[in-house]
């Protein structure tokens, strides 16, 4: 392991680094879980509850499955937005500070 890698390993013990990674990972995995639940919920409906998805919404031609499907699409965009907004606001500055301290 060269000196650069040694220094990186050293940084891994820095409490600021540990806190940053813990919080950002939690955000990433929480949003991942939400997306997985929503999408595989939809897939399981397709697999096991076809009649439910095909049922008319409010008696018209539109079926229950249409708002559900479009909802999954909108949720994917919304979760992406939440992640980017939070990381831009909360984590970027901390990462920059760590990187600056590393060089100094």
């Amino acid at each position: 392991m060269d000196a650069h890698e040694q220094a990186l390993v050293g940084l891994a013990d820095d409490p600021r680094y540990r806190r940053l990674v813990r919080r950002r990972s939690r955000l990433g995995w929480t949003l991942t879980a939400l997306m997985l639940v929503a999408y595989f919920g939809f897939i399981l409906l397709v697999a096991f509850a076809k009649p439910l998805l095909a049922r008319p919404l409010a008696g018209g031609a539109t079926s229950v499955g249409i708002p559900i499907g479009l909802g999954v699409i909108l949720l994917a965009i919304a979760l992406t937005g939440v992640y980017v907004r939070r990381v831009n606001r909360e984590f970027d500055r901390e990462v920059d500070a760590l990187a600056r301290g590393f060089r100094a």
Partner: peptide
């Protein structure tokens, strides 16, 4: 409706890739 199943599947990988 079947075509929508593809569309949704193609899209939901993006958040995962990002997170």
């Amino acid at each position: 409706y079947d075509g929508l199943i593809y569309s949704i599947g193609f899209l939901v990988g993006w958040p995962i890739l990002l997170f």
